[in-house]
């Protein structure tokens, strides 16, 4: 018992990565906020916290899938902004909502194809699509405005049995992610491919009959679709399209994923760790807001956290 607890806290000998420690950090921040402020431990603030954290949790789960295969998707933020801009196009919801997911899947497909078929480094491929998608978003909606379909707004702002809808969004997204990673053949393949890439044997999974090309393309498509879900959620929250809402979101997702103990070199990581990582980020933002920290300093602190958590990971490869 002692041994397994130690393993969980240190992340040693597991495919899950180090996620016990961030959980401890999350609990400590919550405890500190409860003691320091009177507003924190109220049901209202906690539900608010869930709603604030939800876009990050959703997008970070998408990022996790890409990180598990040793990639990185820097187009997440742009896809989120793009989704809100498309949703604010003044068309019926029945057209817009499928369109948003098809477009996101298409962006993911371009990323995946560039990486697998055209041999482009994941960071370069997704950096390019980040700029292309951002440009298209700015053409669609130069400044924030427009209105999103009623159904999208209703889906995030209501409540059921006293529990606000965002909580249900979280449950559904986590269940879907859980099924994908731990309840399907695809999830097993992701860990297999990533483990091979992380240890330098890039064809390891292929040699065991796992198609790396198809699975890698699918990972980028799934990541973009998760980003689109986050975009739909955000569009409902801000009730309009905003070309800048997803700014720097890709780095927040990477921070959340790395904070949750997932190794950026691939193959090691967990869904619960990522959710905890995203919660730590949300708790910190909540705490800094309650403590009246300037938004500029908050951005700098987030950068520092990213640097620290990624700096503590060790990997073999140098460079990109």
């Amino acid at each position: 018992m002692y041994h397994s607890l130690f393993n969980i806290l240190s992340g040693r000998n597991t495919r899950q990565g180090l996620w016990g420690l961030p959980l401890l950090v999350a609990l400590l921040i919550s405890l500190w906020l409860t003691v320091e402020t009177t507003q924190f431990a109220t049901a209202e603030n906690l539900f608010n916290l869930v709603a604030q954290a939800m876009p990050l949790i959703i997008a970070a789960l998408g990022q996790l899938i890409v990180v598990l295969i040793g990639g990185l998707d820097l187009s997440v933020g742009s896809v989120i902004s793009f989704t809100t801009a498309v949703l604010a196009l003044d068309q019926p919801a029945i057209v817009l909502i499928p369109a948003v997911f098809l477009l996101a899947a298409f962006i993911g497909l371009i990323n995946g194809l560039a990486i697998t078929s055209f041999n482009v480094h994941p960071i370069i491929a997704t950096l390019s699509t980040q700029y292309i998608v951002l440009g298209i978003t700015r053409i669609l909606r130069p400044v924030s405005g427009g209105s999103v379909p009623e159904i999208v707004i209703a889906a995030v702002s209501g409540s059921f049995l006293g529990i606000p809808y965002p909580v249900f969004w979280g449950i559904v997204v986590i269940l879907v992610g859980w099924k994908l990673l731990y309840g399907s053949r695809y999830g097993l393949h992701l860990f297999a491919i990533g483990g091979g890439i992380a240890s330098g044997a890039e064809s390891a999974a292929r040699n065991f009959g796992v198609s790396d090309r198809r699975n890698i393309i699918l990972a980028y498509v799934v990541c973009s679709c998760f980003a689109a879900v986050a975009g739909v959620f955000l569009a409902g929250r801000i009730v309009s399209g905003d070309p800048n809402v997803g700014l720097l979101f890709e780095l927040d997702t990477v921070t959340a994923v790395a904070l949750g103990g997932t190794q950026l070199s691939g193959g090691i990581g967990s869904l619960h760790g990522t959710v905890i990582g995203a919660l730590v980020m949300a708790l910190l933002a909540n705490g800094m807001n309650l403590a009246n920290v300037s938004p500029f300093v908050q951005t700098a602190i987030k950068g520092g956290i990213l640097l620290a958590v990624v700096g503590l990971q060790s990997r073999k490869k140098m460079g990109l």
């Binding site: 990185l72 780095l251 990477v254 990624v310 700096g311 990109l320």
Partner: peptide
Amino acid sequence: RRVSAVIVTLAVSII
């Protein structure tokens, strides 16, 4: 430290 160069330099820039 062998950290990903994109992450380090982007984070430094943000800070």
